[in-house]
């Protein structure tokens, strides 16, 4: 697919005031995801740029929770390239954010499958922590690696609810709606997930 490399700043007034339709999952005023997807299908490459700007922070944070620091940007790029290549076949059965979340989980799993095939360590060894001192202390990096290992070892439903609350900063009522559970069941699942994480961290 040919892809325009013209830089579009979606925060510029011209783009943000063009459409005033708001979207519940957008942190700023702008066209809805659905409208942007339609524009992309109609040939507007800048529509994809806007989707990228809107969803990058959450995708990046989600990847950062489970992928070694060195590979976070690489995996994030792969997610958006995959999104770009398959967006034309997106039918809108689910929300774009849900579709992107599924794609993110798939790409993270693919990253680990690739590592397993190459027989590379699944997560960074703790010695890598000393190599990352920019913006984070070595101790913080070491702690992050511990947390990533523990998160990777959790059952999927436990890992998912922790990611939704912490990586995506969704409220419990939003999570409940997303996983089709009532609020009490969601909070209970969250507590059990945290308990399981604690058990893994104590190992």
């Amino acid at each position: 697919m040919l892809y325009s490399v013209k830089f579009i700043n979606p925060f510029s007034p011209s783009t943000t005031t063009k459409y005033m339709e708001n979207t519940s999952n957008s942190p700023f005023q702008g066209p809805s995801d659905e409208l942007l997807i339609q524009q992309f299908k109609d040939g507007s490459q800048s529509a994809f740029d806007q989707l990228y700007y809107r969803h990058l922070p959450k995708v990046f944070k989600r990847v950062r929770y489970v992928v070694p620091e060195n590979d976070v940007e690489d995996v994030t790029q792969e997610i958006f390239i995959a999104a770009l290549n398959s967006l034309s076949s997106f039918r809108g059965d689910a929300k774009f954010s849900t579709w992107l979340r599924t794609l993110t989980n798939y790409k993270v799993a693919e990253f680990y499958r690739r590592r397993t095939r190459k027989q590379e360590p699944l997560l960074s060894p703790l010695s890598d922590a000393s190599a990352h001192t920019t913006g984070s202390s070595s101790k913080t990096m070491e702690e992050r690696i511990y947390l990533q290992r523990a998160l990777q070892d959790l059952p999927e439903n436990y890992r998912e609810i922790i990611m939704l609350r912490f990586a995506e900063d969704l409220q419990f009522n939003e999570i409940a709606e997303l996983i089709s559970q009532n609020l009490e069941a969601t909070k209970s699942l969250f507590r059990r997930a945290i308990a399981a994480l604690r058990t893994h961290l104590d190992k």
């Binding site: 990046f60 944070k61 950062r64 929770y65 984070s136 913080t140 702690e143 992050r144 511990y146 947390l147 922790i162 912490f166 990586a167 900063d169 507590r191 945290i194 308990a195 994480l197 604690r198 961290l201």
Partner: peptide, 16 residues
């Protein structure tokens, strides 16, 4: 459990 939540929160700063 609360300490685990704090570890998680401190391990991944909110706005990278």
């Amino acid at each position: 459990l609360k300490e685990t939540i704090l570890r998680l929160s401190n391990g991944f700063p909110p706005n990278p």
